[in-house]
Nucleic acid binder design. Sequence first.
DNA 1: ACCCGTGATGGCACTTGGTGTCATCACCGT
DNA 2: ACGGTGATGACACCAAGTGCCATCACGGGT
Lengths: 186, 186
Amino acid sequence: MARWQPDACGRIQEAAYALYAERGYDATTISDIAERAGLTKRTYFRHFPDKREVLFWGSEALEELFVGGVTDAPPSASPLAAIGIALDAVGEMFAERREFATVRHGIIQATPELQERERIKLARLAESVAVALRGRGVGDPAAILAAEAGMAVFHVAFARWIADADRSLQDLAREALAELRAIASA
Amino acid sequence: MARWQPDACGRIQEAAYALYAERGYDATTISDIAERAGLTKRTYFRHFPDKREVLFWGSEALEELFVGGVTDAPPSASPLAAIGIALDAVGEMFAERREFATVRHGIIQATPELQERERIKLARLAESVAVALRGRGVGDPAAILAAEAGMAVFHVAFARWIADADRSLQDLAREALAELRAIASA
DNA sequence: ACCCGTGATGGCACTTGGTGTCATCACCGT
DNA sequence: ACGGTGATGACACCAAGTGCCATCACGGGT
């Protein structure tokens, strides 16, 4: 056996999304996913470390985009301004993936266990953004605070974008960022 | 059997903390904890829903304190000011529990699985704080943004407080809050 | 003093997530 | 034709978590 299988990770991911969306995360076993992808449970675990992680495959792209946006922002930009520039790039990327993002968001919102993973992914992303901010000369409590505040902005903007098709993610992010500034200066 | 057992939750919690601290979270089974607490695995699950939750028992007190602090802040206080007042009360409470908080923090920081739970607890706390802020008349994107920013402030202040015994949690929180304000107005 | 309802526990079987190990097969270079 | 490499299937195994039922202590009522 072991005939070459084109893009095992991709096929697993498709199967997992389909089953999680159809019958729910809890009602789906890894053997179900594996069977649908045409392989075994053991092979699933050779591609993903656990049951949740398949939903977060490809999120390195988001991290690269976010960190890259912060790093490449003009040196004169303040921490929050740099994050705003990064959020523009992130919003642009999600615009082409609205359908996918909506399905994924629905699956995650339906399962507390998945929300945990989502939250810690956001926290890790905040740490990466904080590193990028330190690379811009931002000091130490400030870098992580700005990064985490940026994640909050992203989070609320994203949720509104999923619920409301009319406005672009970039717009919603800019609005949330302005709101954050208003809060802090009050 | 089933003689009355004084404070089963408390005994389980003590056993779990001891074992998690000694040999680590992954190397501890629920049967180990149950045995040390003088009961069975099945009974453990009658008191806690899973292996992690025992570390978060009693965190309703933190939520009550935080939400109460925000709710009872003077009506004139801005969202961040209200959170600052709440953080004062929270810091005061932790001052009497520094030893316990340090052990707990060490266990959690050593295990990614526990950090996930910690993060989502913080997110739920942010939601409760946001509700309290809405009760003060704060609008909707602002309430959750202020609450999440407040969690970031609490998080960094807490981490510094654990690492550095010299300063009070209240001081560190005030400093982080000032830092957040500086970031947002830059 | 006896009996009964209630609540907490032990014990057991079972499903599922996750891992270690080994044999097998396709592919590739020599 | 041969051997090495890498991916897979198959199997055994451990631990988390759940359902189910029997059992015991306790308190109240008769």
